[in-house]
C-alpha cells in the first residue's frame, strides 16, 4: 500500500488553506461589523418594537449552535430554492449573521456603558438622535469596544473551523484531507492546531493589552 508522509508539500497545502480561513474570517467580520453596528444602534433606540426585534435576533443566534445555523444556510437554501450552491455563499451568510449577533451585543454594551450625562448633554445641545450617536456616543463607545471586538475575532477565526463539516475547504478541512492521504493524524492535527494558534494567539494578546490600557485610561480619567 502506498501512503505519503506528511512532508513539505503537505505542509504547504495546509499553510495554503490558511488563506481561506483568513479570508472567510475577514469577510464575515467585515459584513458582521456593518450589520452588527446596525443591530447595536437599533438595540438602543427609543422605540421598543425595534429593540425587541433586535433582542430576538440576538437571542436566536446566541441561543442556537453555529453549526445548526450553518446547516440551515447550506441545506436550507438548497432545498428551499432547489439549487445546490457551492459552500461559499452558505458559510458567508451563516458566519456574517453569527458575527453580527455577537458584535451587536458587545457593542450595545459599549454604547450603554457611556454615562447618561453624555446623552443628556447632547440632548440639551439640541442634537437629534443620529447626530448624538455619531458625534458623542459612538466615538466614545468605539474606544471601549476595541478590546472585546478583537477578542471576538479570535472566536470567529476558531468558529470558521466548523465550515469544514459541510466540506468547505479551509484549514481544518485541509487537515482532514491530509490525514486521509498520509494516515498520520498524530502529526497533522497538532500542526493544524499550531496554525490556528499562530493566527489567534497574537490577537488574544493584543486584546488583553488593549483591555489593560483602556482600564488604565479609565481609572486615570476617574481620578482626575
Amino acid at each position: 500500500m502506498m501512503t505519503r508522509d506528511f512532508g513539505l508539500s503537505e505542509l504547504l497545502f495546509v499553510l495554503g488553506a490558511m488563506r481561506w480561513t483568513i479570508l472567510l474570517s475577514l469577510i464575515a467580520f467585515a459584513c458582521g461589523c456593518v450589520i452588527g453596528l446596525l443591530v447595536a444602534v437599533l438595540r438602543t433606540v427609543p422605540f421598543a418594537p425595534l429593540r425587541w426585534l433586535m433582542t430576538g435576533y440576538i437571542q436566536l443566534f446566541q441561543g442556537t449552535p453555529v453549526l445548526m445555523q450553518l446547516f440551515i444556510a447550506f441545506y436550507g437554501i438548497a432545498v428551499l430554492f432547489g439549487v445546490q450552491l457551492s459552500p461559499w455563499p452558505a458559510v458567508t451568510i451563516a458566519f456574517t449573521l453569527y458575527a453580527a449577533a455577537f458584535l451587536g451585543e458587545i457593542w450595545r454594551g459599549c454604547i450603554q456603558a457611556i454615562p447618561r450625562g453624555q446623552w443628556e448633554a447632547g440632548r440639551s445641545l439640541a442634537l437629534n438622535y443620529a447626530d448624538l450617536l455619531r458625534f458623542i456616543i459612538l466615538p466614545q463607545a468605539f474606544r471601549i469596544a476595541i478590546a472585546p471586538t478583537v477578542g471576538f475575532m479570535v472566536q470567529l477565526i476558531k468558529g470558521t473551523s466548523i465550515a469544514a463539516i459541510i466540506g468547505f475547504i479551509e484549514l481544518t478541512r485541509a487537515g482532514q484531507l491530509m490525514v486521509n492521504v498520509t494516515f498520520q493524524p498524530m502529526i497533522v492535527y497538532p500542526v493544524i492546531a499550531c496554525c490556528y494558534f499562530a493566527l489567534c494567539w497574537p490577537l488574544s494578546v493584543l486584546s488583553q493589552r488593549l483591555e489593560k490600557r483602556i482600564d488604565a485610561g479609565l481609572t486615570q480619567n476617574a481620578s482626575v
Binding site: 481544518t172 487537515g175 490556528y196 489567534c200
Partner: peptide
C-alpha cells in the same frame, strides 16, 4: 493552547 485553537480540532486530536 485551548483558548486559541478550535474545539473541532481539539476533538480531532
Amino acid at each position: 493552547a485551548i483558548r486559541n485553537t478550535p474545539f473541532l480540532v481539539q476533538l480531532f486530536i
